[in-house]
């Protein structure tokens, strides 16, 4: 196992300027490490900041303090200070993220949306599309829907399109925000298999999982975000 991501002494607070400039401290002194082949569950009750922490790891949220170092192309880069250009490169090639929301341009066919991350990496369109077909088949999205925009799909279907898109490129680091939340048993099993495959190719994974069974099935460890909440140890 080698280290892929390291959060050091990270703090986060939100200042709400539109609401009397109140400052809401969230985390302080967070230390978090992620290595190859690991799947760490981020835990803590609802509202404790699991998704916030995950967004910080993806550089979607800024950090108020500290460093988040990512091993990218043989170098350690701190995403809290990296240029937008570097962050986009890191996301393109190193850091994958399956969010709970599908955000796409209307009208673009599902197949293209799923294949896009591979195409962006320079894979030829045919290979990328073939892999997209495989994933959509495994995730039980009926073929008759592939040429349609996923915006018309049900919540569970959209979730699976999101997962297919998130797993199509073999990212060295993967962040999964409730990947199994609205799935039935069969599809949940498929997602678990995808996670196992990613682990065995050496991906470093951090995930938020609602149910214990999923967590117990794939996770190699857990990380309780509540212990770094501001005031947690007072």
């Amino acid at each position: 196992m080698s280290e892929m991501l390291h959060a050091q002494n990270v703090a986060k607070s939100f200042t709400l300027h539109t609401q009397g400039s109140v400052t809401i401290p969230v985390f302080e002194g967070v230390e978090f490490m992620l290595s190859t082949g690991e799947c760490i569950a981020l835990t803590g009750e609802s509202g404790s900041g699991k998704s916030t922490f995950m967004r910080m790891l993806y550089a979607n949220y800024t950090c108020s303090q500290g460093a988040i170092k990512v091993f990218h192309d043989g170098d350690w880069l701190d995403i809290t200070t990296a240029s937008p250009h570097s962050i986009l490169e890191i996301r393109k090639r190193t850091l994958g993220y399956v969010s709970q929301f599908l955000r796409v341009i209307p009208r673009v066919p599902t197949l293209d949306i799923v294949a896009e991350p591979l195409v962006a990496l320079g894979t030829d369109r045919k290979t990328a599309t073939d892999k997209a077909r495989d994933l959509l088949t495994r995730l039980r999205i009926p073929e008759r829907l592939w040429q349609l925009s996923p915006l018309t799909f049900s919540g569970g279907e959209q979730q699976r399109v999101n997962i297919a898109r998130g797993f199509i490129a073999d990212y060295p680091i993967m962040l999964l925000d409730e990947p199994t939340a609205s799935l039935d048993a069969q599809n949940r099993a498929t997602v678990l298999a995808l996670i196992e495959e990613a682990k065995s190719r050496g991906a470093a994974i951090a995930g938020i999982f609602h149910d214990h069974e999923t967590r117990d099935a794939v996770c190699t460890g857990s990380f309780d975000v509540t212990s770094f909440k501001v005031g947690a140890n007072d």
Partner: peptide
């Protein structure tokens, strides 16, 4: 000025916060 999703999802300046909200 910054990464698009960072500016929109975690805006720092009062005016950007107003715009996004």
């Amino acid at each position: 000025h910054g990464l698009t999703d960072q500016v929109l999802d975690d805006p720092q300046h009062p005016y950007t916060q107003l715009l996004v909200s």
